[in-house]
């Protein structure tokens, strides 16, 4: 193991002790969740997991290709990693619920990322179906991480339904455009008490840092890492950026005041004359 990854792993562990991230009863020391899709090959997935220190990865369920034998992704994941089954492919709540139950039945845990998309042009999630699926699955004991278009009312409904986190998109899946809906995410961070994990659209470590600086509890990154020139290198950069953003948030730096215009004195009157009430 090279020195860089050791230091990273060490920092990640220390962070876990002083600034724990709790989801579904698990204490995580990494706030970097990683997707495993779109990689060149499965060995790269394994290298990126190692380089990033991530403890939660998403996987999807697909029909087996019966015409040829392929390695299974699970063989490339460390044994202690938490599997987050993504219901991608589901076009409605019923399909998402079915996929989640399949994964659980097969013994692959109860963490599920609800992704319900019936829009193939923009891949925007169906918030309403996501709430329905969350209600059903949370009742069945799943740890539900719903992927949504950031909407405070939907987020509140998800909290009521028993979601473990909310996962607002930053921008469209695969677009790498960063936090296009930053203000809407900010509202969720301010108003929602369960962890807010920014998912989708994070294209660079600086964008991941920005999300963490705002107060997001974690980020989920897939495309940017999988399609990078050096995926493991970028995965490590992401991990460091996420840590930097988190530390910045905890240190509460003063933000730029949008209306910092000086105007005429408002309280001189209190000091010029007698101030008896």
């Amino acid at each position: 193991m090279n020195i860089k990854s050791e230091r990273l792993a060490d920092t990640v562990n220390r962070a876990g002790q002083t600034d724990p991230f709790m989801v579904g009863g698990k204490v995580l020391s990494s706030r970097f969740l990683m997707g495993t899709g779109k990689f060149k090959n499965k060995a790269e997935v394994r290298d990126c997991i190692r380089a990033s220190g991530t403890q939660v990865v998403t996987v999807a369920l697909r029909r087996i290709d019966l015409t040829r034998h392929e390695d299974n992704i699970l063989e490339y994941l460390p044994p202690d990693i938490t599997l987050l089954t993504n219901t991608s492919g589901a076009r409605n709540a019923a399909e998402a619920v079915r996929l989640a139950r399949l994964a659980r039945e097969a013994g692959y845990g109860t963490w599920v990322k609800i992704e319900v998309i019936n829009d193939s042009k923009y891949l925007l999630p169906d918030n309403a179906e996501t709430v329905k699926a969350t209600e059903i699955l949370a009742k069945e004991g799943f740890t539900v991480l719903p992927y949504i278009l950031p909407d405070l009312n939907i987020a509140r409904a998800l909290v009521q339904a028993g979601a473990a986190t909310v996962m607002p998109l930053g921008s469209l899946i695969g677009s790498n455009q960063g936090l296009r809906v930053k203000d809407l995410i900010q509202i969720l961070i301010a108003e929602i008490d369960i962890p807010v994990v920014v998912d989708a659209g994070i294209g660079s470590p600086s964008q991941a840092c920005e999300a963490m600086e705002m107060g997001a509890d974690a980020v989920l990154v897939n495309t940017a890492v999988a399609t990078a020139g050096n995926p493991a290198g970028l995965a490590q950069a992401f991990a460091l950026a996420i840590q930097a953003g988190r530390q910045a948030y905890l240190s509460q730096p003063p933000g730029p005041r949008p209306f910092a215009k000086a105007s005429s004195p408002l309280t001189e009157f209190l000091y010029n004359e007698s101030t008896a009430s």
Partner: peptide, 28 residues
Amino acid sequence: DIIHKDLWQSVQLCEGDRIELVSFVGGG
């Protein structure tokens, strides 16, 4: 219906049955 591994031996197939075989793959 999801059929647990232990029951594969004891389930008899009949005309018109629909089987889905799935497994995990990399995904977002």
